[in-house]
């Protein structure tokens, strides 16, 4: 029996909250573990088909943009620093990641055109590359709360994530889907 997904979501958020001190002590676990988990909890609490008919969200564009801007906000180094010095920001993080990233992403993704999905995937890989590039080579400390060496590790974390996601997204395309191969794999009739 699978537990209901909202229960998993509560467990995930609870885990992130209970272990927030050790998780946030290291930027790698903070940014690459805690933040994605919180966003994932938002995906879990979104029932399939939410807002499927809304005219306001045709193509999922509006909700994807909500997720985009929320992610951008949490990508700012100063937002991450603020979390560590202000309980209000910590609270904001626990609210906006599930409801501002996870849920809108789930709603928008379901309705997004395959091409839009493809573009987003490609851009995600690119942007993780950018972050890796900048964090590995930044000569200044980007976050006051973290060490320069942590910053470098985070940079490599972004790099591995980018590579991992590329493989994860591309590899299935090499697997032959016999059901999908409806068209004859033959050259069209030659005259």
């Amino acid at each position: 029996m699978k537990p209901p997904s909202y229960l998993v979501a509560i467990l995930v958020v609870g885990f992130c909250f209970a272990l927030r001190i050790p998780l946030e002590a290291d930027p790698v676990s903070h940014i690459l573990v805690q933040l994605p988990l919180l966003a994932w909890s938002g995906v879990l609490i979104t029932p399939n088909g939410t807002g499927r008919r809304s005219e306001w969200n045709r193509g999922g564009v509006a909700t994807l943009l909500v997720a985009f801007f929320t992610i951008i906000f949490w990508m700012l180094p100063r937002s991450i620093d603020a979390v560590l010095s202000s309980p209000t920001m910590e609270l904001a993080k626990f609210i906006t990641l599930p409801f501002g990233v996870g849920a809108p992403l789930a709603i928008g993704w379901a309705r997004a055109h395959p091409l839009l999905r493809g573009i987003i995937k490609a851009e995600v890989v690119s942007m993780l590359g950018v972050l890796a590039f900048l964090y590995i080579h930044a000569p200044v400390r980007i976050c006051n709360a973290y060490l320069v060496s942590d910053q470098h590790r985070l940079g490599y974390g972004f790099l591995f994530l980018a590579l991992g996601l590329s493989v994860f997204w591309i590899a299935p395309l090499f697997i032959v889907h016999t059901k999908r191969a409806v068209m004859p794999t033959k050259t069209p009739a030659t005259a």
């Binding site: 005219e55 969200n57 045709r58 193509g59 564009v61 509006a62 943009l65 909500v66 801007f69």
Partner: peptide, 12 residues
């Protein structure tokens, strides 16, 4: 949908 996206774009 366009208006909603535009609103999010501006707010964001």
């Amino acid at each position: 949908a366009f208006l909603a996206s535009l609103a999010v774009l501006i707010a964001g």
